[in-house]
Simulated scan of single mutants.
Amino acid sequence: MDRNERSLHASSFGAAAVAYAEHRPDYARAAVGWALEAASGPRVLDLGAGTGKLTAALVARGVEVVAVEPDPAMLAELRRALPDVRALSGGAESIPLPDGSVDAVVAGNAMHWFDMAVAGPEIARVLTPRGVLAGLWNVMDDAVDWVAGLARVGGTAAVGPRDTPAAWRAATADMHLPGNGDAARFGSPEQAVFPHGQRRTAESLVATLATRAGVLVMPEPEREALLGRIRAFLADRPETADGEFTLPMRTGVLRVRRL
């Protein structure tokens, strides 16, 4: 994906901010704990915080959270849902915080949108020495047969290049190291994957997939055709045809420490 295409996808969420807040999953608690266990203090920046899915999990852990989000509609949803959280307008490439002001920077399903050649030094700037940078991603567990079938039907628009565990590991292994200069700012990456799941119906799962960037930027006829194929697939599978079911997921975490 080139820079222009990445920018188009990254800016697509605002129009679906309410649906994003309603349908996107939270993060496995064990994954959030692992992301933060190496942090030297309680001050955490949720960067690219969106509507606050990860922010809420951080609040529940009792840490001191500040959220930064560039999209006004997403930020408005976050502030509505979490009015007591300090929530600022800003992006990974220009973080509105002082030097060395946080002990950890986390990003939920967001780090792949960052221009790490610029964001890497910015993240290093706001982190304390030995501070932690952690990206978290929710992915579908395609070891489950019907989920693998859903991935085939949905294609790359609905189930993208980081949306299964193996693809996530490959895509994120060196995501934080765009070049030698930034490589010197962080230590070796660690990856871990944690079981997770989300209660869905067929229609709410379709609504969830409709908030994916690849689907949001589709022309309307193509989007409706894709979502129609997904509905037909879910209606034909005994696991998903009637009532609620659990969508098998994993939360993957990439963790590095600032040197």
Results as ranks from 00 to 15, higher is better:
A117D: 14
L127M: 07
G120P: 03
A117K: 11
G135H: 13
A134Y: 03
G131H: 12
R80F: 01
S89N: 08
G91Y: 00
S94M: 06
P96S: 07
D115R: 13
L136I: 14
V102P: 02
V118Q: 14
G91V: 00
V106D: 15
L133R: 04
V105I: 08
G100M: 01
G108P: 09
V126Y: 04
S89L: 04
T128E: 14
H112G: 04
V126D: 04
G100P: 04
A104E: 15
E122L: 12
L133E: 02
L82N: 10
A110C: 03
M111H: 05
I123H: 10
M116F: 15
V102N: 03
A92V: 01
L97P: 06
M111A: 15
D84V: 03
N109M: 11
S89F: 00
G120Q: 04
G108V: 14
G131C: 10
A104V: 00
V105R: 14
P96K: 12
I95K: 11
V106S: 07
V85Y: 06
G90R: 08
V126R: 11
A117H: 13
R86L: 11
G91W: 00
R130S: 14
G135Y: 11
A124D: 03
I123M: 15
L88K: 01
A81C: 00
W113K: 09
A119N: 08
P129Q: 14
R80H: 09
A104D: 12
G120K: 07
G91C: 13
L133K: 05
P121L: 14
G91L: 04
S101W: 03
A124Y: 05
V106F: 06
L82H: 10
P121A: 11
V105W: 07
G131W: 13
D103F: 06
F114P: 07
R80C: 12
E93W: 05
A81M: 00
E93I: 04
D84I: 00
R130K: 14
M111N: 01
G135E: 14
D103M: 04
L127I: 12
V102C: 06
V132Q: 11
A119E: 05
A124G: 06
D99A: 15
A117W: 01
V85I: 01
S94P: 00
V132G: 08
A92E: 05
G131M: 13
A87T: 02
P98C: 02
